[in-house]
């Protein structure tokens, strides 16, 4: 990354203030925590996506969200609810039809944009702290103008959330038929949190009703917009919670699938 000391914050006719920023609070904490949090998650997710094992618990039908929908020829047949049509290759994730869209959905998310523009790209690292770059064109040019495609990735993420919900419902299973254990609570909690994040997305808010000029003519869409807006108020919180819930859900399923722990069963 190229950074610079040559930004416009001090030269005349502006006040000739020598220090480039005068903040005395811990403004670096946010960007550092963001870098650490996102890096840890990306390393873990990358490892799990290409690990291609311990993603399915046959007795209870737990499928980790990192492998949903499982569509590779390498998938365990029972875990492949939508067929197996992708070639089995160590370079192709088993859920290769969903993961790129989920990645793009998060990459173009308005919250994550703020997070990585500040922490990874230093543009700016914090408010009233100089931009790390001498030139700035924002999201006016390729490739960043592509951030406007967020809505499409939202549509895809919406469908994938439906699939995750379907997986969570199918997981009420045991060798005796219906069953219910701690894993079900984990999968359900993850799905609920994913919906909170997805339904609070800025694009969803726009699609639900934000694009309208006259709410009074569209009461149902206005109601949907208010729900989406309420979730949107905490979009950053949902963004981080769902990163954690995805990783924890995956880890729980992996732990049970690998035999490291037994699932705590409430019914069957």
């Amino acid at each position: 990354m190229t950074t610079t000391e040559d930004t416009a914050v001090s030269p005349p006719p502006r006040a000739a203030i020598t220090p480039r920023n005068l903040r005395t609070d811990s403004w670096m904490r946010g960007p550092i925590l963001t870098v650490v949090g996102i890096t840890i998650w990306v390393v873990y997710a990358t490892f799990r996506v290409f690990y291609q094992g311990d993603y399915w618990v046959p007795d209870y039908h737990y499928l980790t969200p990192f492998y949903s929908p499982c569509v590779s020829e390498g998938c365990i047949p029972d875990s492949a609810h939508f067929g197996r049509f992708l070639p089995d290759s160590p370079l192709i994730p088993y859920a290769a039809v969903s993961l790129p869209f989920l990645l793009a959905f998060r990459l173009t998310c308005y919250y994550y944009r703020k997070a990585y523009y500040r922490s990874f790209w230093l543009s700016p690292p914090a408010c009233a702290v100089p931009d790390g770059h001498a030139k700035y064109t924002g999201e006016t040019r390729f490739p960043l103008v592509g951030q406007n495609l967020h809505r499409y990735f939202f549509y895809a993420a919406f469908l994938i959330s439906v699939i995750n919900t379907y997986d969570a419902i199918l997981a009420f299973h045991s060798p005796e038929g219906f069953g219910f254990g701690l894993g079900n609570l984990v999968l359900l909690a993850n799905v609920v949190l994913l919906w909170c994040y997805t339904f609070g997305c800025h694009s969803c808010r726009h699609v639900m009703g934000g694009r309208l000029k006259h709410f009074s003519k569209h009461p149902i869409r206005y109601r949907l917009w208010t729900i989406s807006s309420a979730l949107n108020n905490r979009h950053m919180m949902w963004a981080w919670i769902t990163l954690a819930s995805l990783a924890l859900t995956d880890f729980y399923v992996m732990s049970v699938a690998a035999g490291w722990i037994d699932d705590l069963r409430f019914v069957n």
């Binding site: 308005y110 944009r113 703020k114 500040r118 543009s123 700016p124 408010c127 924002g138 999201e139 006016t140």
Partner: peptide, 15 residues
């Protein structure tokens, strides 16, 4: 107005 320049880092909202 150059809305595309904004990279929504939210400092305007913060202050």
């Amino acid at each position: 107005q150059g809305l595309g320049y904004c990279n929504i880092t939210k400092c305007c909202t913060e202050v």
